[in-house]
Design a binder for these strands. Structure first.
Lengths: 190, 190
DNA sequence: ATCGTACGAGACATCTATGTATCATTTCTC
DNA sequence: GAGAAATGATACATAGATGTCTCGTACGAT
């Protein structure tokens, strides 16, 4: 049906498919089309009506994930703030999209455009790590690759713990930033 | 052929299959039998000669991973040492088995025995976190689930960074312990 | 050198997932 | 209420993965 004019349109079948596929495939990349349809609450024929094939759906999902994560980071980052403040803002923006962020490397999409975009995101994280080192928030002796890997995993772990209800959404970015910069030891008095 | 009596026997086809399957399926659980055979350097018929079917291989792998990770932890843990020392020793023991450790939850094995064993391992990690909190190495205000999740991911990340050559094997456990307890900020003078 | 064991390649059967198509039903718009 | 659009269920075709089997080859033990 054509998009309604009312202020809060009912999600279309296509939206339901996209959301269910990201959620399912970020955990279980081998899940079948039938399983995706089930999770989306639609018929398998409807999947085939909206997407030419599995590769088509994967490509569409990759574009959406790239766009959403890039936009979230661009909106959140204030270049005039300190690097550690930027880190926290980035966590705040990206953790709610943790499933989308990790979908980009877990789903084995493999086409060059997606790979290049994901690598660009990692490069930007690497640049931020350089700035964190320059301002002393991260020690210079720690391999940058290690810090980037930690940030990557913190995004997924935080999203997963929030999704599982074990951590409050409001606490996630703070816990992630604290874990990275200060660890989970007792906080000393300032 | 029957096992040789020489002190360092050539790895059998079965050993090659097991190692290749763990390595491949911990990253890409959807990989096919043909891909496993290729990675193992054997023919697909040889896979079928050693293992009844895909489920049989998965079950064997799960048993091996459980046994190796349990034995590594049991050997490394000195109950009389401090909790943070035990943490470092556990990291030293388990990180080289990071692919086996994460295979247990990534490969979607799903049988109750494997799930129970993995959960038992997580419970032991949770117990250690309790001890870390009791001795003040981890702050009491941090959710235990968050700390357990961080340890889980540190094992995989460390293994992956070592396997990729970006981090030296000798540094991995130290980086993991430091990241968890102190973070990656500049280390203050004692 | 011979025999036994293990293996690789390939053919074939079976199974599962995907892709295509059709028809009846439901939903939405006018 | 009528018509258009979208959907679900089902059947069928296709493709790929798995499982089985056979034969020739390689390797190890004697």
């Amino acid at each position: 049906m054509r998009p309604a004019l009312n202020p809060s349109p009912r999600p279309t079948a296509r939206d339901a498919i996209i959301d269910a596929a990201i959620r399912l495939w970020s955990r279980n990349p081998g899940a079948t089309f039938s399983e995706v349809a089930l999770h989306a609450g639609v018929g398998r024929a409807t999947l085939h009506r909206h997407f030419r094939n599995r590769d088509d759906l994967l490509t569409v999902l990759a574009e959406i994930c790239i766009e959403e994560t890039n936009e979230a980071v661009a909106t959140a980052i204030d270049r005039s703030a300190s690097a550690s403040r930027q880190l926290q803002r980035m966590f705040e923006a990206v953790i709610p999209l943790g499933d989308r962020y990790s979908f980009l490397y877990r789903a084995e999409i493999g086409d060059e455009h997606t790979t290049a975009e994901y690598r660009r995101q990692l490069d930007r994280v690497g640049t931020l790590v350089g700035e964190l080192k320059a301002e002393g928030a991260v020690a210079a002796d720690v391999p940058t690759a290690w810090v980037v890997a930690q940030i990557d995993q913190l995004i997924w772990t935080a999203w997963n713990e929030v999704a599982s209800g074990r951590v409050a959404a409001a606490d996630a970015a703070y816990l992630a930033t604290r874990t990275l910069l200060h660890g989970l030891g007792k906080e000393e008095q300032p």
